[in-house]
Design a protein around this nucleic acid. Structure first.
Lengths: 361, 361
DNA sequence: TTGTATGCGTTATCAT
DNA sequence: ATGATAACGCATACAA
């Protein structure tokens, strides 16, 4: 605690910091407290059998030595690292901050920590997985798409896995998702009821399952309502894709569509800006625009976007709970946790009030 | 790899997943390869002394057994966990995603992984620190403010530390920062040169050092230029603070200021939206607005904000390099890594071209 | 309740 | 280049 007197308030270049003064172990504490090492160990295990007296002496000694149990050593014997791997890619993940901080909070509630595997591309999972095994994580939450083989490998290695907002092609795994099909259907229903007929969809990358489901839902509902097939263009979930998507749609369609549904808010915002500032279109006067995710900017005055919010907090909590249940060996049924998106009316789409049963359609 | 035939493609509830089939160890590999366990160990250590022949046999055996070294056991003896703690709060950190993914990439370049300590409040550091010690991380990067005592504790425990975009009150630590004073000065210079006289500053939380430096720089330069003192109001770095900040400023000032400098882009955007959509002010006609950070939305057509970009990629790389240098015991001088912000002209502030020497002032 | 002894899976040391 | 052996720091079964 003593402050030094060098001009920098630092003795040496910090980091030289004394050649790693031997670490304080439970033996040191035991010696000082006059008990055995196992007694010390027990004192740090909640619900162990220790007398008040020794507990007090041990804790006092521990405090005076600044003793803190070594998680590496502990995990070697307990086979619990208290770490959870989170696989996530920033590029294809729209609410990286919300998801990650929500996950981190929820995982911390269970006394575990997030070991972050941040992918540049979602397709980098393969190369990353070997690292995941090394670190002996207790489980993993993937916000990136996994192949069947990868899911199987988790199972084979006995590492519990939960997919958040992703699905696997074939293999069944524990998943926490938001019902994208239902959300897209509800959106189309509302727009159709307000008189929109010609739709355009600006999608995410073709391999994005979420985007596929959103398209499927929209398509389904349009068909049911007997409306013309939507024009579909592909984007990258980013701002620029919204603008180019709109231009492409108009060109291919030979006219301005009645409504554009974008697979992400950021694309919807790009579309909106392009419509208003570049094409001079009135939104929602001449064109309705809707997005997905309810990211923060969608709520800003300049946009006030019509969108659908996923209950991310709850989903993160569900994912953490589900994972920890598996880790603890508690029975966990395989059925997917499915949440519903919340419709945010916004002001970028012309909407008519609807009978409630239609909303659920 | 064999797929099962149950209706779910799953044998049991996944996660039951067989009672933790005994882990494959280096002994198993040694046995299969017909060598000693130490031979196996050496094969996984880069630059160890192994013959081509045994290396091949070991690797083959390892592959067939799916062997992967156990990081917990390794770190116990090597005293290297290959994990770096990252302390960051999402609320007070404006570019959480950029920072975090940049840090993760850069740390991965050094063969290490990020153990995430996501704080709800920056002030939660204290409670979090005990966890950091437990996990035996090789070092830490803090994007949250640390007290002097906390910095000292890192040193005492021999855990290398780098502060990213933060400083400590007294203690000197390794820091990577962006020169906020210079940035604010440059901004004021440009605005003053274009004729703005009455400034308002919408700041971040009073304990935010970054915000303090930005104010100091702005104030300094205004004084030098003989301009009236700016009106200062405090916000929370969020969207709403921008609007309320602007209203307060106008009320306290009795008029609309010539220019508002916001301590974050998000506040600047809030200010902008309030000015245009609620107060009906023309920006930059009647009012100039500028922000800091160049977050993605600042670049969107609806805003096109005048702001200053911090070179986050480079800063993250510098932080990672600096930390790893300390971890590896390489000499590291204590002088802070100071980056310069890049001026983004945008279209929300009336600007006049300036002689280049004035920009540096 | 407490202490003794053993093992977790690896790397490091030291012979050979 | 290779193998035996000793740590690393802790938790646990068992004896006391």
């Amino acid at each position: 605690m003593a402050k030094t007197t060098s001009p920098f308030g630092i003795d040496h270049a910090p980091g030289a910091a004394g050649p790693a003064a031997r670490r304080v172990t439970s033996y040191d504490v035991a010696l000082l407290a006059g008990v055995s090492q196992s007694a010390v160990s027990r004192c740090f295990k909640p619900g162990a059998s220790v007398s008040k007296a020794t507990y007090a002496r041990v804790m006092k000694a521990a405090a005076s030595l600044d003793y803190i149990p070594n998680a590496a050593a502990r995990s070697l014997i307990t086979r619990r690292s208290n770490m959870v791997a989170v696989l996530i890619s920033n590029t294809s993940n729209l609410h990286y901050p919300e998801v990650l901080s929500a996950l981190s909070q929820q995982i911390a509630r269970h006394g575990k920590r997030v070991l972050l595997f941040s992918l540049v591309q979602e397709s980098d999972v393969g190369r990353t997985l070997a690292d995941v095994w090394q670190y002996q994580v207790d489980g993993a939450i993937s916000v990136a798409s996994l192949s069947d083989d990868q899911v199987v490998e988790f199972r084979r290695r006995g590492v519990p896995l939960v997919l958040l907002n992703r699905r696997t092609p074939g293999q069944v795994a524990h998943t926490v998702t938001c019902d994208q099909v239902e959300a897209a259907r509800a959106l189309v229903s509302r727009l159709a009821a307000a008189g929109h007929r010609q739709f355009a969809l600006i999608e995410g990358p073709t391999d994005s399952i979420i985007s596929q489901e959103r398209r499927r839902g929209a398509w389904q509902r349009l068909t049911e309502l007997g409306l013309p097939a939507p024009l579909v263009v592909t984007g990258q979930y980013d701002y620029a894709s919204g603008g180019t998507g709109l231009r492409d749609a108009i060109r291919l369609l030979g006219r301005v569509p009645d409504a554009v549904i974008c697979a992400s808010d950021v694309m919807a915002i790009g579309c909106l800006d392009c419509a208003r500032h570049e094409l001079g279109l009135a939104v929602p006067g001449q064109l309705s625009v809707a997005g997905f995710d309810a990211v923060e900017p969608s709520n800003w005055l300049s946009y006030n976007l019509t969108t659908l919010r996923q209950p991310m907090e709850q989903m993160a909590a569900a994912a953490a709970d589900l994972l920890v249940a598996q880790i603890d060996g508690r029975p966990t049924d395989a059925h997917p946790r499915l949440f519903s998106a919340q419709f945010i009316e916004g002001a970028t789409a012309r909407l008519a009030p609807l009978p409630p049963d239609m909303l659920a359609a």
